[in-house]
Amino acid sequence: MILDVAGLHKSFGDLEVLKGIDLKVAERELVFVIGPSGSGKSTLLRCCNRLEEPTSGSIRVEGVDIMAPGVDINAVRRRIGMVFQSFNLYPHLNALGNVTLALRKVLKKAKAEADDIGMRALVRVGLGDKAKAYPNELSGGQQQRVAIARALALEPSIMLFDEPTSALDPELVGGVLAVMRQMRESGMTMVVVSHEMRFARGAADRVVFMDQGRVLEEGPPEKIFNEPEHARIKEFIASLNG
């Protein structure tokens, strides 16, 4: 197991957002997470690299308990790539600078080596020619691909995507999904929160449906999308297509 979440609870004050989540993700697996807004999808991803501090439960990444006292959380985070809905590129750095910052400061690579790795990551997402461009000179789709390259360059063992295409104009979605598909083909382990059902049908090994802080149902995409056990899921999927 690359990622093993067990009995995960998370509360914000009195509001219990995650009510006992179990989720296992095997190597090279792509797990697709859907569910209504507010069901806790983002919180789940953010707990996995402790951007949110879980209230209770256990999270293991490559067998390492990331909640254990004394764990080097920065070393763990570098093994978990994260892609945000709003890109969160650093506006004061160009594309290459965005990709190489952690290479240089976390992995302590020399500038030349970091630049080399960074360039390769940018080429992988199809932006080799935009290395010198600043975020405000890039389209939303290009920004998101730089953000993916930023995570990829650290050679993570798993990548978490939180609605990576939700902030994009429709015509820019395809480029980002293509990059994700290609990552999947090269064997990256991925957890993707998204509403892109077509992508899920083609690429997901497993779909997890979350509702009100719980996993309501999980299974292969055909099952969840076509004949879910819960009427709730059918309604939700119909609402997305409608």
């Binding site: 951007l51 763990v76 570098r78 790539g81 709003s86 976390v106 930023r150």
Partner: peptide, 21 residues
């Protein structure tokens, strides 16, 4: 924005590094 802290921390930068860079 908070997202800048989160993006930096998610790549493994420490709190001080996130501030500085």
């Amino acid at each position: 924005p908070r997202g800048q802290f989160e993006a930096a921390r998610s790549t493994g930068l420490g709190a001080a590094q996130t501030m500085a860079y």
